[in-house]
Amino acid sequence: MDTVTPVHLLDGLPADAEGAALRALALTNYGHFTSLQVRGGRAQGLALHFERLRLGNVELFDEPLDEDAVRGWMAQAAAGGDCSLRVTVFARGFDHRQPLRRVAPDVLVSASAPAPAPASPLRVQVRHFFRPVPQLKHVGTFPLFHHRRQAQMAGFDDALFVDGGQARISEGTVWNIGFWDGVRVVWPQAPALRGTAERLLQLGLAANGVAQEIRPVSVDELPAFRAAFACNANGVQPVVAIDELDYPDEPELRALLDAAAAHAPWEPLSP
């Protein structure tokens, strides 16, 4: 299938890079988004992505989301091809000095080259951080990328976040983490952005009869697990090291996760 030409649609029209709307998005750090992979004009977990956008709109703007319009713009941007798709909701009229003033949200749909499935395993560094307003996928991404940069400067690939008190594991910079104890998949319970890929894997594992548990996981417990993995919209990636602790890439776990990821249907973007 053809890869789409990069395109940016603002409320369904070609976005003007010099326009006031995009300047507002760049200068006012207030909005929310979702990201997904599209193949042949189809994507997995569309209901979850729209649930995320719907909740973000209510919390940030007290406004409903015109889901039919947004879905049409997504299909327009993808043009039936393969791409990485991002839907960002902001408001060019938002004024931080009057945050309660009602404004009409704007929707920027961006299609770019499709992201390949991650091929290399991850070595991650534990860093103390909890994202603010973790229930929303908001545009305040500075601390995520700062911590990733700091981890890479220390010789790792990425950062894994824990709280500063109980050292409970929450999530990675732009991914969720799961652990394998040889019998079940354990998902850390902590304030974090619950990703669509994580939720789709949970549904797929349940459908395939794989045991799962959601509970707090501390750094001290990590040696008891046999393997770990990261997941986001780009796919599943083995985590082979957390600080000085090494994990093998377990073929059994990889097969279970591949089967779970394939469980969700690919749905057409066109309404």
Rank of each mutant, 00 (worst) to 15 (best):
D2N: 12
P6G: 06
V7H: 00
L9D: 14
L9F: 09
D11Q: 07
A15H: 12
A17I: 10
E18G: 15
A21I: 07
L22D: 13
L22M: 05
R23E: 13
R23Q: 14
A24K: 07
A24S: 14
A24N: 11
Y30E: 10
G31Y: 02
S35D: 11
L36Y: 02
V38R: 04
A43S: 14
A43I: 05
E51Y: 01
R52W: 06
L55V: 06
N57C: 08
V58T: 12
F61Y: 12
D62I: 07
E63S: 15
P64I: 03
L65F: 07
D66S: 12
E67H: 08
E67T: 14
R71E: 10
W73Q: 11
Q76H: 11
A78I: 05
G81H: 05
G81P: 00
D82T: 06
L85W: 03
V87G: 04
G93E: 09
F94D: 06
D95C: 06
R97E: 13
P99V: 06
P99A: 01
V103A: 11
L108Y: 09
S110H: 08
S112T: 15
S112M: 11
S112L: 12
A113M: 12
P114H: 07
A117G: 11
A117K: 11
A119D: 15
S120R: 15
P121Y: 13
L122P: 10
Q125R: 15
Q125K: 12
R127H: 09
H128V: 15
V133G: 00
V133S: 08
L136F: 00
K137D: 10
H138M: 00
F142T: 12
P143E: 03
L144A: 13
H146Q: 15
R148E: 13
A151T: 10
Q152G: 00
M153E: 13
F156G: 04
A159V: 05
F161G: 02
G165Y: 00
Q166L: 14
Q166W: 00
Q166A: 15
R168V: 12
I169N: 00
S170W: 02
E171I: 05
W175P: 06
F179S: 05
D181V: 02
D181F: 09
V186S: 04
A190V: 03
A190I: 01
P191F: 04
P191K: 03
L193T: 00
L193F: 02
L193A: 04
A197S: 13
A197Y: 00
A197F: 03
R199W: 00
L200G: 11
L200T: 13
L203P: 01
L205V: 03
A206Y: 02
A207S: 09
G209I: 14
V210S: 12
A211N: 15
Q212K: 15
Q212I: 14
R215C: 14
R215E: 13
A230W: 01
N232G: 01
G235E: 12
V236H: 06
Q237H: 05
P238R: 04
P238H: 03
V239A: 02
V240F: 00
A241I: 02
E244L: 06
L245G: 06
D246V: 01
P248E: 11
L253V: 08
R254I: 08
L256M: 14
L256R: 15
L257Q: 10
L257K: 04
A259Q: 11
A262N: 01
A264N: 10
W266P: 02
L269C: 06
S270C: 10
P271K: 09
